[in-house]
Amino acid sequence: MKLPNYNQRLLSIEKRTQRFMLGAIGVMLLVLAMIAARQDYFSRSTAIYFITPNAQGLSKGMAVKFIGFKVGSVQEVSMQPNATVRVKVSLDDEYVHLIGQDAKARLVKEALVGESVVEIIPGSQQVKQVTQNSVLEFERGQDAGAVVENLAAQLQPILGDIHQITSSINNPGGDVQQTLKNLNLATGGFRETVNQFTQLGVSSNQAMGRINSSLETLDKAIPKLVDKADTTLDNVQSATADIRKITNDSAGEIPSLVRNANALVQDGQETLGGVKKSWLLNSLFTEPEEQILPVDGYVAPTQP
């Protein structure tokens, strides 16, 4: 009596197990499909290559950017029989028409901190666009640390020079101070002569003679002073020219560093914002609200 019932229950359990398994497989397939979509398996891409003497800083999955946009990723980094490194890059087809055969791949670090990326430097528009298995020229860009280090190394001797010049300006026995002292003495002598001329009423001939003599002294002193001042100014000019040169050299790198650091911070903020809004974590991050100061219900007596 009981056996058919038991078999029926077994069948029902089997059916439910089947349904559960099918559901689980379905969910797994969905997750796999999502991962594949994320990994760009469904997007059409073009593989291009570049050759580099070593693989330092290069890794699989690294982003490939073109004018700041992600256009692909590094698919493979492999060593060749001739001890060079071949890097395979997968480019999204929608961007391929923008990249000419003469474009270059450059390894750059986006900011002082953070990941390196491969940046595609656009070639000329007239040249034919890259196609499957095209090979690009590769170069290594200076990373942020190296740029700052170079800048510091070049600035150091100039700062030393400037320090020396300012010390010489401040030195009481130095050229500039002496020049100023001489100038001061000369103008003092001249003033004294004029005073004597007006106050004591000496004869005009005598006064004119003394004025002439003072002017002669000035005539002799001024060219020397001007020469010394010229030398000092030349030194300063040469130092500022050096600084300008270094600044110009670094001008191309620094804005890009700042821009990249800014983009990195923005990316970080967006990621954090996204994490905060995800349903698993949003309960941990409550939205801030305007707060009210608590009332302080005590008034001090006028005379305690």
């Binding site: 809004k277 349903w279 949003n282 939205e287 801030p288 609200e289 305007e290 707060q291 100061l293």
Partner: peptide, 24 residues
């Protein structure tokens, strides 16, 4: 339960909140 409707907060409101919190 997971699909909670997020309250829209304008950038201006967030700015006011930031000023308020800095003041606190």
């Amino acid at each position: 339960g997971c699909g909670e409707v997020e309250v829209l907060r304008s950038a201006r409101l967030e700015q006011a909140t930031e000023f308020n919190q800095r003041a606190q």
